[in-house]
Amino acid sequence: MKTPLTLFAGLDLLTSAVIVLDAEGSILFANAAAENLLDSSFKSLTHLKLTDLFLNGQELTAVFHQAVAHQFADKRQDLTLERAGREPLHVHSIVTALDNPDTPVLIELRENVQQLKLDREERMLDQSKANKELIRNLAHEIKNPLGGIRGAAQLLELELPERHLRELREYTQVIIKEADRLQTLVDRLLAPHRLPHIVGDVNIHEVCERVRSLIVAEFPQGLSIKRDYDLSIPEFRGDKEQLIQTVLNIAHNAAQALSERIRQGDAVLTFKSRVVRQITLAKVRYRLALDLHIIDNGPGIPPEIRNRIFYPLVSGKEGGSGLGLTLAQTFVEQHMGVIECESRPGCTDFRILIPLP
């Protein structure tokens, strides 16, 4: 007689999570995908019941009992399943009644990728709004006393005794120059909120070519820039200068991260454009959207800052201001779009999505 382990062993080949239960709701089998999704080993799962898996599994349990009673062949629904101390699971569940009294119910759970994407975008939007508010408040708080410090240093310099002017003026000049440097930083922090949103017709490939010429001029040797364009992408209304700055900030960061590969002569930076259809951006559904990728074959973003790269003043390189990606995110959001990033050693992919007419 075949055991559930041998009977359902083929289910280990599936990428979706599958669990098989008896009539009492005890788990008899769980495939490898279920182990990954539920963060539990096969041995641990087979000591549990369906009711042990989730804090809010009443709806799934009710459907399970209906399947045991053969009230349907299979039933599908989208669920958000909560777990103690872990992220909720957004899944599409399929409960199937099997024609076997020993293993009467099979449940398949597929992660709802779209819901995960929406949740991630919502978190990014909330984070971006909080960042902007923090930047504005902090910049204004710094700006006012900064002017006073600079002015006081200038007045102090005028009052210095002539016999000590040269040696003491060195110190007042340090104060003035550092105040000017901080003023420049504050102006950069406030710039995205001050600049007018100049709207015109934008061809995204002209933007990419402009950035390409700037990168080639700075890195003429050892860096190959590939172009993979969909030339059917229509023009759209936007601020061309903002978009050039956005793509340049990302591409320049990538080129700097590729320094070792540039020395080796095998650095590659890729501009790739596509169109996506029926996509939701910032909770709004659009028929068409630009899908622009800026990809490099560098070492990847350090894991310790990977989830914070769009935060202001977070930088992965020594001496970096940590404002380039924050500005890029702000400019893309002003075009009703979103910016995402996936990174691993050998491939970092920044993706810009902007609605098209």
Rank of each mutant, 00 (worst) to 15 (best):
S93W: 08
L288V: 00
V268G: 00
R136T: 06
V113L: 15
L281N: 00
N56P: 07
G147T: 05
A251L: 10
A179S: 15
F236P: 00
T246V: 00
F8A: 11
T51S: 13
L189G: 15
Q221V: 06
L11S: 07
Q183L: 02
A67F: 08
A23M: 04
L313W: 07
G147Q: 12
Q278L: 08
T246N: 02
I215W: 08
D349H: 13
P357D: 14
E340R: 04
M336Q: 07
R210C: 11
Q334I: 03
A254I: 10
T6N: 14
E218H: 06
A62K: 11
A289M: 09
P303R: 04
L168W: 13
N112V: 06
K75L: 14
F42H: 13
R194N: 08
S16M: 14
L14H: 03
E178L: 09
H65I: 07
H140I: 13
G316D: 12
P161F: 05
G265A: 08
F310A: 03
R287A: 05
K226L: 15
R188G: 13
F72L: 11
V338L: 11
Q127T: 01
L7C: 01
L81E: 04
L98V: 06
V68F: 09
A17I: 10
L45M: 13
I94T: 13
S232L: 12
L165Y: 15
R308W: 02
S259C: 11
P302Q: 10
I94S: 09
R110Q: 07
E178P: 00
D119Q: 08
V95E: 10
D119Y: 10
G200T: 00
V68Y: 09
N253S: 10
H92V: 14
C347N: 02
Q256P: 00
A97W: 08
L155S: 01
L81Y: 12
E318M: 12
Q242H: 13
E121W: 03
F42V: 07
D22H: 11
L11V: 02
R76I: 14
L50Y: 15
H335Y: 05
P345T: 01
S40Y: 09
R227F: 11
L118I: 06
L28A: 10
R344C: 02
P355E: 02
G337W: 04
I244K: 02
A33C: 06
L160A: 08
L106R: 11
Q183T: 09
P312D: 10
